[in-house]
């Protein structure tokens, strides 16, 4: 059987997720035994518009992007969103509750009129997405796990439970107990609680779980000492688009 052809695309984002793929090191060769990469501008010059699986990084932030996304959807058999910007709107969505003209002026100054822009959104707000690799950035392990699932014809195993589950299994001291403020209790797991393992907090980069108890989490944040505004900001960092949709 011919190896599936794989292409990478980027929209508004830092390309950090593709960097994670490029950094697969020893697993990269095993992976290339299963797929043929036909387009990946971070690591190769060649490009082909003939592909089976499209990995898309970045958010959709302007109308012109939609056309490009629709074209990718038409060509690819499977579309996979990789990284927070693509899966949940990511930190790009932070700007969505600000005045867009102000944002453009801040970023582009006098040339703002040259740069079109609209509310940042995840890929699935524009085209249907078949699979997600969450995270900011994605982890190599989960990327490989999703790719293996797709190659085997299996629905990728993305947890519906929050990061606390992994934190407990890893026997971490709860971030709240360390005097920190964490949104792990409402954030989708799958990262093996990597940030909390290292002594920091969960920022929520994998997005909200399907049915988060947001009020309870905000109450917890305030109970442990955050102001109401800070608690709301905690949610905005990564959950902006999802919260707006809910």
């Amino acid at each position: 059987m011919a190896k599936p052809k794989v292409a990478f695309f980027d929209f508004a984002g830092c390309e950090g997720d593709q960097l994670q793929v490029a950094n697969l090191e020893e697993e990269l060769l095993d992976l290339l035994g299963q797929v043929e990469v036909v387009s990946f501008r971070e690591v190769m010059k060649e490009h082909s518009d003939n592909y089976d699986i499209a990995f898309i990084e970045g958010s959709c932030t302007r109308l012109q992007d939609e056309e490009r996304l629709k074209q990718i959807r038409k060509t690819a058999k499977l579309v996979v969103a990789i990284g927070s910007c693509a899966t949940i709107g990511g930190i790009n969505s932070l700007r969505n509750d600000k005045d867009l003209d102000d944002v453009r002026k801040t970023v582009y100054g006098e040339d703002a009129r040259l740069f079109d822009s609209y509310a940042a959104r995840p890929i699935d707000a524009v085209i249907p997405v078949d699979a997600y690799v969450h995270g900011c950035p994605i982890t190599k392990d989960e990327f490989l796990s999703v790719v293996k699932s797709l190659l085997l014809g299996k629905k990728p195993d993305i947890p519906t439970y929050p990061v606390c589950v992994e934190c407990k299994k890893n026997e971490n001291v709860c971030a709240f107990e360390r005097g920190q403020y964490c949104v792990g209790p409402v954030t989708r797991a799958g990262c093996n609680s990597c940030c909390v393992n290292e002594g920091t907090i969960c920022w929520g980069c994998r997005g909200l779980v399907d049915n988060p108890n947001e009020n309870s989490e905000k109450e917890v944040l305030i109970k442990y000492g955050l102001t109401v505004d800070d608690a709301i900001n905690k949610f905005k960092l990564y959950f902006g688009w999802q919260e707006r949709k809910r």
Partner: peptide, 13 residues
């Protein structure tokens, strides 16, 4: 259970 986060902490520990 109104405030339950369904985080599973109680059962995992």
């Amino acid at each position: 259970s109104e405030k339950c986060l369904a985080c599973g902490s109680c059962v995992l520990v």
